[in-house]
Design a protein around this nucleic acid. Structure first.
Length: 982
DNA sequence: GAGCACTGC
């Protein structure tokens, strides 16, 4: 325990640290800062690191070979060999004290102190951060351990300060970089800007890199980036040699890339140690739930030490409801906000709901209850200010009277309450931070009728907030509300982590969240509203204590809260993982199942991913020989194919990467790039079906909706372009938008989401670059005046799309198969027994083509297919049936002209549709039987067999075929029979 | 004839 509390001076220049003890007095029971140093890695690697010069590595061929072997070991079963002998890891903690390693063996710790010239204001602000008092402890732990976990909640300053500690301790001298990963782009950008400012350094030194942009230079020493960026870098340089330190921030969020990075780094760190170029790994988490990292011996053979730092947060009093509303949590939110607004002192309110529609309808209700007449220039009106302020004062006095009496007549305040509820009431009293407040902040959870009445004397400034909301509308929540009003933000989960709203004092938490679920077998996704986790609830509550002490009203009982899961499941366990698996295979990790995941994905998900990648040709097919068991084993460890390597370089889902890889032909690349970009970016079109804020808005929304539908019909094109279905709509929309300069005005007028269009533009740019670097002679560029594809190209594009979505083919259920009404207008897919449908928003909704290819199936009221391409003809990829059906299909293709090109010219004149070959009642037409018998007689179920039969007998099939042709044409056909050159 | 939270390359 004590080891890391040593006050010994560190060899980093003249800098002195305050002894820890002083800071932690007065002798209260200081919480353990170091939760676990058992087995902290005490084996010094001095011999390696001292003898070899730092920063220089001559990479001989042998070393490269060794590296490759080590990398391959990642996929071997022997994951425990992280390069440390067993006995060392078991050394008791005491023995470490006996060997004060810090002074005797400096190991990889840089002995430098780099001065930083901070402004006095910054310096002052920094000193208020609790983490600053921990600098010495943190740096000692980092110096002595290759891997350290730091826990500290939001407000601890760990993200901004730890990189500075490392910089000052010389970790960036000798050309090393400190890399920090963030799960979100905004965080990477804003953190880099803040740290640059705090350190008084240029953006050339403290930089960021996100998907489409960055300001990294040769001088960069501290680099903030998104986790995906670092994962891509591992692909180029497995050992991440330019980094001296990697910090994984927000590891508790358990984003997919973060998890993979931690798994990879657990192997990279010992590899770097071995090379004499040690890399430090720092995992930062907001919660103390880090066992998945620390107690996972597959991940880290030696348990890394865990440091805990305090956060500077204001206290938040949590109030539970006594009753948990069964389903109307939205209504309960309304009532709670009304009470807060009427009875409690000023301060912003933040409400958590689950979706756009809910957000808008609550906004509408609240605005109705507390109208706020905004003038043309909302809120900046000084004339009004006074009167509003006066009104407010008046209201305040009235409210006080009310507040003093209301809680006492709360009918829900029974004398007999369950124990915990009683406690909650006490919490509210004792924790009440507003001295002299005369209001009971525990509002109870009763209904009361009067709240529905409109009260314009108490203006509430109500704003919606969700991710898909236009940025300028989102930005409103960051500005102070108009004078005399109270801010009330009704938000989805964005407000939980991604966006922090200033001035929030009250949080209303419905306890629910809308999540996407995937069926592991069928891949069908659905959205469900579930209870949040305890960690989530606490995160939401924390949003009330950013600027002053706050209150959180949970619309569920504490008993229900106790039943919540402690933490939500890591993303990697809940999602299809084909993209990850491809990335890993590209790193030569073949036995993915043995990868040291902090939490592994379910076996079904791994198998499904592997299967899809094999089908796409990204992995080499497993051998079909040998024992079943071996075959099964081989199936889960297929090596990557050359195609797979190309696909892995494209930063999109493997399905789309396959489409790109195929599009060299017929100048389709620019179109495929655009289609893939549009399919990757979510929600191209504005949502107009939501509840409106007012009657006039309802009318406005309707108008916009109509305009969009009209435009979509235009974008859908004509002829074979139309068969590209919804993808043509996307292509047309993007094309039109770019043609007009991609202006916010154009988007606004045509129902396009401006943000989505920008993202598509940037993704097109990135994919174009990626394709150009694979096909060096492609010479592609992003053309803002891209013409629509030609008819022929549109047909190729359909095939290209099908190549990526081959398993997403749905067949229209024919009238004669209509056994049940539920199959009306339905489609059948390979994997699902249930009918699936074309979504009413599709341009193909009324068209009902025989075959469609879909992007995904989402289950709502029915199973709906999203973003379809139409197929009038069955695709060749369809499994060829066995038995008599083989001949039926072959007959059909033959008649359609798919087998023999020349017969195609007659396909329009046929007396019956080739499709009837497949009908159950086909026998009713003699010509079907006749043709079928002729084919069966010669075993003709493929083109080669047909050609062979013609060689034997040139008049073969003529009679049977003529039955399908009008008499006038029969003579002509007979002359040219057989319709091929033999 | 509809109703999708959030995020990264």
């Amino acid at each position: 325990m004590k080891l890391l509390y040593t006050t010994s001076k560190l060899g980093i220049g003249g800098r002195m640290y305050q002894p820890k003890r002083v800071l932690q007095e007065p002798g209260t029971a200081v919480p353990e800062k170091i939760r676990s140093i058992s087995g902290a890695n005490k084996r010094r690697h001095s011999s390696d690191s001292e003898s070899e010069p730092e920063g220089e590595s001559s990479c001989s061929e042998e070393e490269k070979k060794e590296e490759k072997q080590e990398i391959e070991k990642l996929s071997s079963t022997n994951v425990n060999c992280a390069g440390k002998p067993e006995e060392d890891t078991k050394k008791p903690v005491v023995s470490q004290q006996a060997a004060p390693a810090v002074s005797s063996k400096p190991s990889c710790k840089p002995a430098v102190f780099v001065p930083v010239d901070r402004s006095p204001e910054i310096q002052e602000a920094r000193l208020k951060l609790p983490i600053l008092a921990e600098e010495q402890v943190i740096m000692e732990a980092i110096n002595e351990n290759p891997i350290v976990v730091i826990c500290g909640e939001t407000g601890s300053g760990k993200t901004t300060q730890v990189p500075q500690f490392l910089y000052e301790a010389g970790y960036t001298s000798s050309n090393g970089i400190i890399g920090i990963t963030e799960p979100r782009r905004v965080a990477a950008v804003s953190m880099s800007q803040r740290v640059a400012k705090e350190m008084n350094l240029s953006h050339r030194v403290v930089s960021y890199q996100i998907r489409y942009e960055g300001n990294v230079t040769d001088e960069t020493q501290i680099k903030f980036m998104t986790d995906g960026v670092l994962l891509k870098e591992v692909q180029k340089d497995f050992l991440l040699l330019k980094y001296k330190v990697i910090i994984i921030d927000e590891a508790h969020e358990r984003s997919m890339y973060t998890d993979i990075l931690i798994g990879l780094l657990s192997r990279i760190v010992p590899l770097r140690e071995k090379k004499g170029l040690p890399l430090k790994l720092i995992i930062m988490s907001a919660t103390l739930r880090v066992e998945d990292f620390t107690e996972n011996t597959r991940l880290f053979a030696v348990t890394p030490p865990v440091l805990q730092v305090d956060a500077r947060q204001f206290p938040v009093t949590v109030h539970f409801n006594k009753k948990t509303p069964l389903d109307d949590y939205s209504g309960e939110c309304f009532r709670k906000v009304c009470k807060i607004h009427r009875m409690l002192p000023s301060g912003g309110i933040l409400v958590f709901l689950t979706g756009q529609a809910e957000v808008h309808s609550l906004c509408r209700r609240l605005r109705k209850a507390f109208p706020f007449q905004k003038n043309s220039t909302a809120g900046d009106d000084d004339d009004r200010k006074e009167s509003v302020e006066e009104m407010r004062k008046f209201k305040k006095s009235r409210r006080r009277r009310k507040a003093a009496t209301l809680p006492q007549i709360n009918l829900d305040n029974y004398a007999v309450v369950p124990v915990d509820e009683g406690d909650e009431d006490r919490d509210a009293e004792t924790d009440d931070d507003i001295a002299g407040s005369d209001v009971d902040l525990d509002l109870g959870d009763g209904d009361s009728e009067e709240e529905e009445k409109s009260d314009s004397s108490l203006p509430l400034y109500v704003l919606p907030l969700y991710s898909l909301l236009a940025p300028e509308k989102q930005a409103k929540v960051f500005r102070p509300p108009p004078p005399g009003t109270r801010l009330c933000v009704v938000a989805t989960n964005v407000a939980e982590t991604s966006l922090t709203i200033p001035g929030i004092k009250y949080v209303v938490d419905c306890g629910k969240v809308k999540k996407r679920f995937y069926d592991k077998i069928t891949g069908v996704s659905s959205f469900r509203v579930t209870w949040i986790s305890q960690a989530s609830a606490n995160q939401r509550a924390g949003r009330a204590g950013r600027t002053e002490p706050g209150h959180c009203y949970r619309l569920y009982s504490s008993a229900v809260f106790m039943d919540f899961e402690k933490f939500s499941a890591p993303e990697i366990t809940k999602r299809p993982v084909e993209d990850l698996i491809l990335q890993m295979k590209a790193l030569n990790i073949e036995k993915v199942i043995n990868f040291p995941f902090p939490t592994p994905p379910p076996a079904e998900a791994l198998a499904a991913a592997e299967e899809l990648l094999i089908a796409l040709g990204a992995l080499k097919e497993p051998p079909m020989t040998g024992r079943l068991k071996e075959q099964q084993a081989a199936k889960l460890s297929c090596p990557i194919s050359p195609l797979g390597r190309v696909m892995a370089t494209f930063p999109v889902a493997p399905r789309y990467a396959k489409m790109l890889a195929l599009s060299r032909q017929h100048d389709c690349l620019p179109y495929t790039i655009t289609i893939v970009s549009a399919m990757t970016v979510r929600e191209l079109f504005e949502e107009f079906d939501r509840p409106a804020a007012s009657e006039e808005e309802t009318v406005k929304l309707k108008g916009k909706k109509g305009r969009l539908v009209q435009m979509q019909r235009i974008w859908a094109g004509q002829g074979s372009l139309q068969k590209l279905g919804d993808l043509m709509v996307m292509l047309g929309a993007v094309g039109a938008c770019e043609y007009s300069g991609c202006t916010p005005k154009f988007c606004e007028e045509n129902g396009l989401r401006y943000k989505a269009m920008l993202e598509i533009r940037r993704l097109r740019g990135q994919l174009t670059t990626a394709v150009n670097s694979v096909c060096t002679d492609a010479g592609l560029y992003v053309d803002p005046k891209m013409k629509p594809p030609t008819e022929a190209q549109a047909t190729y594009l359909r095939q290209i799309v099908l190549a990526g979505l081959g398993d997403h083919l749905a067949r229209r259920v024919q009238a004669e198969e209509l056994l049940d009404d539920k199959w009306k207008n339905a489609y059948k897919t390979a994997l699902l027994d249930d009918p699936v449908f074309i979504h009413p928003s599709s341009v193909l909704f009324k068209q009902l083509p025989d075959f469609v290819v879909y992007q995904e199936i989402v289950e709502t009221t029915k199973l709906y297919m999203k973003d379809r391409v139409s197929w009038q003809l069955p695709a060749v990829e369809v499994d060829y049936p066995e038995g008599i059906d083989r001949y039926k299909y072959f007959a059909r293709f033959l008649l359609e002209g798919k087998v023999i090109e020349k017969l195609g010219s007659y396909s329009q004149c046929l007396l019956s549709s080739p499709l009837i070959m497949l009908k159950t009642w086909s026998k009713l037409q003699p010509r079907t039987e006749f043709l079928l018998q002729a084919l069966v007689a010669e075993n003709c179920d493929n083109r080669d067999a047909l050609l062979a039969a013609w060689k034997k007998n040139p008049k073969y099939l003529l009679a049977a075929y003529c039955q399908w042709i009008p008499e006038v044409m029969q003579e002509d056909i007979a002359k040219q029979w057989p319709p091929v050159a033999l």
